[in-house]
Design a protein around this nucleic acid. Structure first.
Lengths: 181, 181
DNA sequence: GTCTATAAACGGATAGAC
DNA sequence: GTCTATCCGTTTATAGAC
């Protein structure tokens, strides 16, 4: 394996491992030592790829943004609130299920919320999504519905026995019911 | 003031302050030094009342259990799933709104979930509540609805501009809609 | 009941060898 | 690209004076 390929491998492994541990134990309760140990490298090696712990979190959120941006663009091209809700929910749920064992790192997480810079992009995406579903001036009930539906982590955690397909269907029905106020 | 009264005062202040800071910054990101500073005492004094940081978290969760236990008992005496859902939601939402600035410390929180002993009681309450609403064998959709509705923290955080009364009404409507599957 | 002082361990981060 | 060794601030927790 070339050195460049090895580098890409390690970098990706750090992100995967970090994401899993952040989701399980929380960002603050996960030390770089733990991340490194889990993938059988040293802490110093992790620092070779990410200058700070925060940088790892930022990289993870960038991945989310990269996924949701095109989804929102597609959704905007559909006509009718019903069709938009269905497309948006389907895309959202697919990503949640795909990262099931990892669980999503939502805007809710204190580690995300307290960093202005990290928080900016996800907040922008949330605003855009609400516009698509509810127009320029969502009611408080609509905004509440959005905040609830975008945080399905506890639901995923509560239903570990479902297959991926079952979970996907449950989440789709649930989110659509919540969002169509 | 007697010494006993002073003790009760300080103990209560620790819990109030800790709860606020845990909710804002997360359990792990809140140090005992910060808690102590916020209430103008020393860290050592906090340790006089609670042997460990975990003990503070346990005490906070005990408070929640103490609140929800009678609520579930009342609910069980009502006939009809609709009436039960309304009573349960009303009581739940009242507690959420009353602790609004503090925000609820749900089972979701990693700090709670990772401690088997801490986690046991809230999990029991959840099971009881689901039985009351959905009978002995809830469907996956029903269980999913419960998990989502019991974690309204993000909704509270997202609607800071509402008055208490407004927030209460929004949450009641939202939870009822989610739970009545 | 509250304080000062300190122990002991941990966490993020860097220097420099290989 | 990965490692060993180390620095330094912070954190949990305790000992002992008042």
């Amino acid at each position: 394996m070339t050195r460049a390929a090895q580098a890409e491998r390690t970098r990706a492994a750090i992100l995967t491992t970090a994401r899993r541990l952040f989701a399980t134990h929380g960002y603050d309760a996960t030390s770089l030592h733990t991340i490194a140990d889990e993938m059988d490298v040293t802490k110093a090696n992790v620092y070779y790829y990410f200058r700070t712990k925060t940088a790892i979190l930022e990289a993870l959120l960038d991945n989310s943004v990269t996924y949701f941006d095109p989804l929102l663009t597609e959704t905007a091209q559909l006509k009718g609130k019903r069709a938009r809700a269905e497309h948006l929910v389907a895309g959202f749920v697919d990503q949640v299920v795909a990262n099931r064992a990892l669980s999503p790192l939502g805007q809710t997480h204190p580690s995300v919320r307290r960093n202005e810079r990290i928080n900016a992009e996800p907040a922008r995406l949330a605003t855009t999504a609400m516009r698509l579903l509810y127009g320029d001036e969502p009611t408080d009930d609509q905004r509440a519905a959005w905040f609830l539906a975008s945080d399905v982590g506890p639901v995923v955690a509560g239903l570990p026995h479902l297959t991926h397909d079952e979970l996907r269907e449950v989440l789709r029905r649930l989110c659509l019911r919540v969002l169509r106020v």
